[in-house]
């Protein structure tokens, strides 16, 4: 199970990066990057998955004593939580930038913003 998730996660990342680096439209780049970060999150969570175990909630179903043998690794999940929110933060910032760049130059093509070079 974890391997499939990881494979698809990696595939998502590669697709995301390829999309971001070939598409010249700013918005499409941001979309591609958000897909890539989703892929990263999938890979992260798949790392923590141990076959045949349940979610890390110690309620009635998971008694305290046998918890260590029943739950999956909670640490990657905690990391992913933070990563998703950070991903959103960066995406929102890039959107604001894209919008402001569009208003400034009336174009969404990244190759129009090359005054700073050499």
């Amino acid at each position: 199970m974890a391997e499939i998730a990881m494979m698809s996660g990696f595939a998502l990342i590669l697709l995301g990066i390829f999309g971001a680096l070939t598409n010249r439209n700013l918005l499409r780049m941001i979309v591609a990057f958000s897909i890539a970060s989703t892929g990263v999150n999938v890979v992260l969570v798949s790392i923590g998955y141990l076959p045949g175990r349940t979610a890390p909630i110690l309620d009635a179903a998971v008694p305290l004593e046998s918890a260590a043998a029943q739950i999956v690794d909670p640490v990657p999940q905690a990391l992913v939580l933070t990563a998703i929110v950070i991903g959103l933060g960066v995406t929102a910032l890039m959107l604001a930038y894209a919008y402001s760049l569009f208003r400034h130059r009336k174009s969404l093509d990244i190759s129009d913003f090359t005054e700073l070079k050499w």
Binding site: A2, M6, L14, I47, Y49, L50, L64, A68, I71, P74
Partner: peptide, 23 residues
């Protein structure tokens, strides 16, 4: 990434940090 995925072997038991958190 492929090499990372191939070398990846899911742990049988939780590692030391996870065990601490679980217990």
């Amino acid at each position: 990434f492929g090499r990372l995925a191939l070398d990846y072997v899911p742990d049988a038991a939780l590692n030391q940090t996870a065990v601490h958190y679980a217990e």
